[in-house]
Write a protein that binds this DNA or RNA. Structure first.
Lengths: 212, 212
DNA sequence: ACTAAGGTGTTACCTATGGTAACGGCAGTT
DNA sequence: AACTGCCGTTACCATAGGTAACACCTTAGT
């Protein structure tokens, strides 16, 4: 009986992984607009099985998103925990994120602002995934900041604001960069780190201008 | 003949505005998942007319988004151009943005991460709108920064990176804040401005910690 | 060997939605 | 009176998400 359940569960888990991998391929190929039918076809089966495994499309996409999100967060954590001075760590982390989105843009386009790829203008309610990743990254960063920096009495809150703010900065800049490729990754990293290091505040007004 | 065309055009424009206002009401009520049927019903007409006016759902939503986007950008420009010193302006701008999203969260949820509201998990390809607003804000800010700050040879590029980065920071932090309300708007503004002013870089390590 | 359970898989169907075709009517112009 | 141009309708199509009902196969227990 134990063995039965174990084997059953194991097979089910295996199947689930297979299905997720098929879904992954399709999403990577067709974009986030991929239909359940297409995914099922790629997996060599039909829709109802997908629904039995994942409940609904949101469930499938959530499972898919979780995979990549976890992977990305791991790589970011590694960069954040590296033995180096602060500026170096920040740059490493930014670079890790940008490297990831550069290597597999489709994946991260899917995670961030879903419905975009795909020839069809169809779609579904994918907004649910974007938030989770950004939020998780924000909270994670906030944790690190709050743990390691001495920010005074309201430090906890400050850390959270900064965590989400920095993640948002990274995300938006990365997204824009991925679309226009106006510079190298290293330059982007430097520019963002400079921003975080207060260079905006320190910069001088342009001569003759109205000041800023 | 002239009069004819003029009156026809005028009536058409009026109608278009009416339709947009109806769509606005529905989107505000039902979220971005609002169906074309619902919008048509609210306007007291049927679908084909909407399609004649806006082409497709994307067109309608684009028109809708443009309205709000323009309005928001105006208010941001005003804050950015106010006669005050730099820090003050930055805070004013952040505050203007946050005030706007606080006053009409539904609108900005629609503009930013579309498909989210609505009881249905239906949706359509709204990802197209999010980008435009963020991008436009980013470019606008980049312009201001590039125009007024002396950033050396690569200043142009730096300004663009910063523009998009800051906008992303504002967006993500605002979004998170709107969801959790962990502090007052003024506190959030101060925290973000502090971040921009390099307080992250300047903060001391926590005693006993591994450093950051 | 027979049965019960729980997984896999199918076909066929329902519903809602974006989108369109074909039609009719109502104004003003010529 | 005929023409043009917009408003508006009903009816329809295609596609996508999601579900019901049914069949199969493997394994456990009797």
């Amino acid at each position: 009986m134990d063995t039965t359940q174990r084997t059953d569960q194991a097979r089910s888990a295996d199947r689930r992984r297979e299905l997720l991998e098929a879904a992954d391929r399709v999403v990577l190929r067709d974009g986030p607009g991929a239909s359940m039918n297409a995914i099922a076809a790629e997996a060599g089966i039909t829709k109802p099985i997908l629904y039995r495994h994942f409940g609904d499309k949101g469930g499938l996409y959530a499972a898919l998103a979780k995979r990549h999100t976890d992977a990305l967060l791991d790589s970011l954590r590694a960069a954040l925990d590296a033995p180096a001075e602060r500026r170096e760590r920040v740059e490493q982390t930014l670079d890790a994120y940008l490297t990831a989105i550069e290597a597999r843009p489709q994946v991260y386009r899917f995670l961030m602002h879903p419905s975009e790829g795909g020839q069809q203008s169809e779609g579904f309610d994918v907004g649910k995934h974007s938030a989770p990743l950004l939020r998780r990254m924000g909270e994670e960063l906030a944790q690190v900041i709050g743990d390691r920096l001495d920010l005074g009495p309201a430090g906890e809150q400050l850390a959270r604001v900064w965590g989400h703010g920095i993640v948002g900065m990274m995300h938006a800049a990365g997204d824009w960069w991925l679309g226009e490729r106006p510079c190298t990754r290293a330059e982007l990293v430097r520019s963002l780190a400079d921003l975080l290091w207060g260079r905006l505040a320190a910069a001088g007004d342009k001569v003759g201008g109205p000041g800023f």
